[in-house]
Design a protein around this nucleic acid. Sequence first.
DNA 1: CTGAAAGCGCTTACAG
DNA 2: CTGAAAGCGCTTACAG
Lengths: 313, 313
Amino acid sequence: MTVSRALKTPALVQLGARERIAEAIKQLGYVPNQAASTLASAKSQVIGVIVPSLSNSVFVETLTGIRDSLNQHGYKFLIGESGYSPERESQLISTYLAHAPDGFLLSGIEQQDTLREQLATNNVPAVRMFDLGTSCDDVTVGFSHEEAGYSIARHLIERGYRQPGFLGAQLDPRMMKRRHGFRRALSEAGLNPGVEVLTPAASTVELGTQMLGQILQQAPDCDAVFCCNDDLALGVLFECQRRGLSVPSQMAIAGFNDLPWSAFANPGITTIVTPRYQIGFTAAQLLIKILRREPIDNPNINLGFRLAIRHST
Amino acid sequence: MTVSRALKTPALVQLGARERIAEAIKQLGYVPNQAASTLASAKSQVIGVIVPSLSNSVFVETLTGIRDSLNQHGYKFLIGESGYSPERESQLISTYLAHAPDGFLLSGIEQQDTLREQLATNNVPAVRMFDLGTSCDDVTVGFSHEEAGYSIARHLIERGYRQPGFLGAQLDPRMMKRRHGFRRALSEAGLNPGVEVLTPAASTVELGTQMLGQILQQAPDCDAVFCCNDDLALGVLFECQRRGLSVPSQMAIAGFNDLPWSAFANPGITTIVTPRYQIGFTAAQLLIKILRREPIDNPNINLGFRLAIRHST
DNA sequence: CTGAAAGCGCTTACAG
DNA sequence: CTGAAAGCGCTTACAG
């Protein structure tokens, strides 16, 4: 018992005893048994984190933010990939629930009802990332994808492009919101919002190279594209180079996320800078506050985004 | 007790009892307590995985291989980032040991002695990934980085480049082995192996753009570069385009890893295709064999690599 | 095929 | 400031 106290609350243990304990721990190579601790205290110090995919570096950066925040407070975390599937997400939650996590960090705000029930019956709090909730029941940290799509379109319109097209992959809810904002701006400006190529495939550079051909076939007068992710934009750029299309005079390219190389491409790619590290960090901080029952002033935190204008538009 | 059996070994429980149990589980939303199971059985079904970094997509793909393999067998895994630091690696192992992992999957073969002791005293088996061990005490899955560097150099020499340079970042042991092989081939061919730029910074596209300038300043007649990772190579490619250097006639570029976009760059980047998914999958399979005490025919598995020749050289 | 007993290594709550 | 008691929810090993 005194050993336990020496480890958790050393201030309550006499110095002499503390020293003897430290000595013994060293000699024996003692490591506290986390399973026993979890069982006895009903606190695991584990947070379940579920992101859509680890192949997308956006989510990896979010994980870094989560880690930096959680490490400060002694929490570990279990990482799960939902593959953008709500069913898979629910299934992961079930598995993780067996580890008695203190809380969850989830992606998106479109969780299944069964998942919400699971969380409620087990009384485990969750913070949702990447998107903005409206209800006060949800705790969310993100930004408006609709506004982001809108602002890219406004930029292209102001630059004078007459037939911007949309290149969308994955087709997850947040991507569809970006598309919605993009189309809204085009419609408002009296331009045709219907030039687009959509595919449920994951967005990759390779896919971008293919999609340029597809949109040009559909709309030969397309003079700008908004790619729902920067890797698509890079593929479009490579393909323009191969076809001898000059960027941006013959084809303007805008991306999304500001991946680490976007600014260094030739030309630099205009894109929306998203605060993904900050989303992870903030979401984790918020969850910790909830676990400590500290008051939360705003359960729906909008971290915003920034339009980075570069030479590709 | 019968419930426990119904879950673990349903064959030993009568059908009627099994059905009543399933019904009750559903009604109560029962989830087995993993901590209690771990405590009672001394088996956690958890594998500790430590990779140098998650920012490098190479390691993310390895994680995918590990996940695919481990999921089949009901294991979960804890992911740690060592940041290429052996000290940090040891520290992570200590933390993870508290979760009583059944085994570890580690990166590289240069672990600290203290780490080896930790593993030995706790009697936890480990498989080392990405490099090749020589001793039968170690279990390793990887390929020869020295040979890979050598084969890139041979390719450049055969193509007729007279002054290939080396661009190295991170300076981790595996990178240094690639460099060693590269230099050996140049020396054997009577070429100058001393043209190189090295930096401990993480390899990024941005860094690649800077390193091209540095190596040209040092050796203006440098006509080819071997970049220790493809993202460096992409940065070099962008910078060549900006400077109006034609690739490969004025500057040949070779990379390493075959990242997803390397084949689609303009021109496609010559690189070494590394089997990182397979490394993760195989290492996990091997660890499971060890945990089941099945015999292992070869503790040092060489998965090899492939030279992909594209238009950048 | 089923169940009662003991114990895994901690923590909580209480007594000294 | 220290320690003895009980219990967390499972599994192991044994008895029926």
